[in-house]
């Protein structure tokens, strides 16, 4: 990759005590201010929300919301995934996503999905690499940004029963 030196990247959970790190990242990464529910969902998703540390500096995060059904498999919704600009292109985003996909396969998950703005080709390409597919288009999903439409991008997991 881009660097000539090996630097370790590690993941850490989000708690009350370091929540501000996620908030700081989001302020810079996204043009939207997230509400308290976003952060409550993120914390309660446990292993599905992670901060990425690049040699002890927090540089990126993935935040998910778990949609659980009584008795059935759960759905995982990726609320945000982002890495600070200077630290892109060295595999940190992949590491975060892989971690969540890993968690999905360990727990009873039917699918993982997210919304992507229709013109964000790079993002779509990125997710396709991990086996996601466009499953739906929602008109006028965004209010303040153009284009206002978005895709629903989904990766389904084969159910354990079907695996046998």
């Amino acid at each position: 990759m881009g660097t000539g030196r090996e630097v370790s990247v590690s993941l850490d959970g989000v708690r009350d005590k370091n929540l501000m790190q996620l908030k700081k990242l989001n302020t810079v990464l996204f043009p939207v201010r997230y509400n308290d529910k976003y952060y409550a969902d993120a914390i309660s998703s446990g292993e599905f929300t992670k901060l990425a540390y690049y040699s002890d500096i927090c540089v990126g995060a993935i935040a998910c919301r778990l949609e659980k059904k009584e008795g059935g498999p759960m759905r995982v919704y990726i609320m945000t995934l982002g890495v600070l600009a200077p630290y892109r292109g060295i595999g940190i985003g992949s590491k975060l996503l892989n971690h969540v996909l890993d968690m999905c396969s360990k727990q009873n998950t039917s699918e993982i999905f997210l919304h992507v703005q229709t013109n964000n080709e790079d993002a779509i390409k990125f997710y396709k690499k991990f086996g996601f597919e466009i499953t739906e288009t929602i008109q006028d999903y965004y209010i303040n940004i153009e284009p206002r439409d978005c895709y629903v991008v989904t990766k389904s997991f084969a159910q354990p029963e079907a695996n046998k």
């Binding site: 996204f30 990126g60 919301r65 990726i78 945000t80 982002g82 600070l84 985003g93 790079d122």
Partner: peptide, 20 residues
């Protein structure tokens, strides 16, 4: 705005969610 990417990976703006 910055969507020029080195190797096709834009990781900042993978997803946007306003719905929550």
């Amino acid at each position: 705005g910055q969507t020029e990417l080195s190797d096709g990976q834009v990781e900042a703006f993978k997803s946007l969610s306003v719905s929550t």
